[in-house]
Design a binder for these strands. Structure first.
Lengths: 337, 337
DNA sequence: CTGAAAGCGCTTACAG
DNA sequence: CTGAAAGCGCTTACAG
């Protein structure tokens, strides 16, 4: 590409009347610079349109300035929210965001991760479910002292950044919502058991039932795996096991969609004959007809904060606060009456 | 992160008994190295586990080694296929793949693109629909002499890499499929008119009808915008305008899903009462119930080839072959009888 | 065609 | 706390 006369750290130093060391410090958020000088340098840099050269920083500092999200999850809506949150935080701080999909055919997570870590020498990693609970992966990362963040882990790690919602409480509140609308014959469609979130959401479901003093026999658990197909199957199962159920809580929106489609095929109207609520507030939930009432978690913000805290950790070379809980909300639409 | 003793170009040069210049040439696919020496160097590098330091290359060569996909398209399945294809090609060649989502609230494409180009100094860009037909964006890229590739452009550019399928022919062939199954009352649900692909698929639809000598009045066009909601609306429209239609070709799978859901809600069975085919072979098509017969295009491969050719262009500093057509296939499932 | 050296734009010990 | 200098690992003119 065409190279216009590129500003260097020296140009800024001269223009601000300081040494390049000071400029370097300012751009690395290092201590020992008076606020006044910091503002001066930043002002000059902004006026001149200076941006530090990433390659030079990488080479000199032996850092990669790469934050990587390692994942194996077919939910592209979820993944793209994470990527977008990461990308925002990275771009604010002069880092690169990389999303690495694990190709299952390539062998084990562990081997793929190892290859990856050796290759890119990332400065920080973000893990999302189900990898955020993969002890072998976490062990490899810790062995290399790479700062990392866990999004929605089943088990929080003291030595990592943990960003999460209260899954149980979320499951509880959306079940409370079903109950408040008058439903007392309920079903829960689970996700994959390997995702801690599914188990926790289920715990919330049962808690709501207990608190509302609904007899346990009036509630049923249907096994799913987060896929739309498992939502179809769950509905079939429901018709066999508990056809009297009127309120369903699916552990994610895709299964809610599957359940609704299956219900329609069987001549049931949603929400008149059957109320269905989902989880995630995915584009799906908005797009479906009827649009799906769903519990929303701020995935984009969670990824953004994870990345910010990760970058702070990289700079400070020490982990600060390690737990960050986000709140959720129920987005009310038409699938539950 | 922990730094193990890092191999440099000098270590490889010594081990192979050549100068660092030769090693550098080998890793840049530069000419003037005998095949024998090339193999020797690559062999030594592989044995020792050497990888060139990207930052050093960037700094010395003034290249960024970044290939960027600039997009504004809500279809995350499509986007993730593109990203994955790019990422594979980049990782094979020591480049970075970056996906940049245009935040619509930030103002015009053009401004966002400018900010972006200045900021990252990318070595190559990939544009996908609808941006692959945005003349203002293309003008800015050409002004800066940045190599770029267009995925599925409406108008091919001689000065760019064009990777595409024959959209019209694809639309023709899936319509032929509907006709061959005995349907002679047909509907086409269009996508956004700003996407050339939708117009071309429609042209194929009408061609098939003409060739099959089906009276034009037996076919109808319903306006959609690629969203699931527009599929719902299209079905409603269809019931008003042409309730006798039995075969529907939706310009993408999301609209096919919407149409099917709407049909189910209205007590119609798919495919018994209504056959529906889609386009893209998205995860949606596979997951729906009934699973959707759809025209598949190899998006991942298209992105992979675009990126490979882009990197070749960057290295050679000249554009080679500029047009690459991919073939498509119909994936037959249950939504069309 | 090949070799020795300068240089890319930063960061980081190391003296002062 | 600050300044001058070395150095990160490559590529690229520039002499030979």
């Amino acid at each position: 590409m065409t190279t216009k006369p590129k500003l260097t750290i020296e140009d800024i130093a001269k223009a601000a009347g300081v040494t390049i060391k000071t400029v370097s410090r300012v751009f690395n958020n290092a201590p020992n610079v008076r606020q006044q000088k910091r503002d001066l340098v930043l002002g000059v840099a902004r006026d001149l349109g200076y941006r530090p050269n990433i390659s030079a920083r990488q080479l000199a500092s032996k850092r990669s300035f790469v934050i990587s999200h390692f994942h194996d999850n077919p939910n592209t809506d979820y993944l793209s929210e994470i990527y977008e949150g990461m990308r925002r935080a990275c771009s604010e701080q002069g880092f690169y965001a990389v999303a690495e999909k694990l190709a299952p055919q390539k062998g084990s997570y562990r081997q793929a991760l190892l290859d990856y870590l050796v290759r890119f020498e990332v400065d920080g990693m973000i893990l999302s479910p189900p990898i955020s609970d993969d002890v072998a992966v976490i062990r490899e990362i810790e062995k290399r002292n790479i700062p990392y963040a866990l999004i929605s882990p089943g088990k929080k790690k003291k030595s990592a950044i943990n960003v999460f919602i209260d899954e149980k409480n979320a499951g509880r509140s959306i079940t409370d919502y079903l109950i408040a609308r008058g439903h007392d014959q309920l079903a829960f469609i689970s996700g994959l058991d390997s995702h801690a979130a599914s188990r926790q959401r289920e715990a919330g479901f049962w808690e709501a039932i207990e608190v509302a003093q609904i007899p346990k026999k009036n509630a049923v658990r249907l096994a799913g795996d987060f896929s739309m197909q498992s939502g179809f199957a769950a509905f079939d199962n429901l018709m066999k096991k508990a056809p009297h159920v009127t309120g369903i809580f699916a552990a994610n929106d895709e299964m809610a969609v599957g359940t609704i489609v299956a219900a329609l095929r069987n001549g049931k109207k949603v929400p008149q004959d059957l109320s269905v609520v989902g989880f995630d507030d995915s584009p799906f939930a908005r797009a479906m007809w009827p649009a799906i009432t769903s519990l929303a978690q701020p995935v984009n913000e969670m990824a953004h904060l994870s990345t910010q805290k990760l970058i702070e950790w990289v700079h400070a070379e020490a982990l600060g606060q390690s737990r960050f809980e986000f709140s959720t909300e129920i987005i009310i639409r038409e699938s539950c009456s």
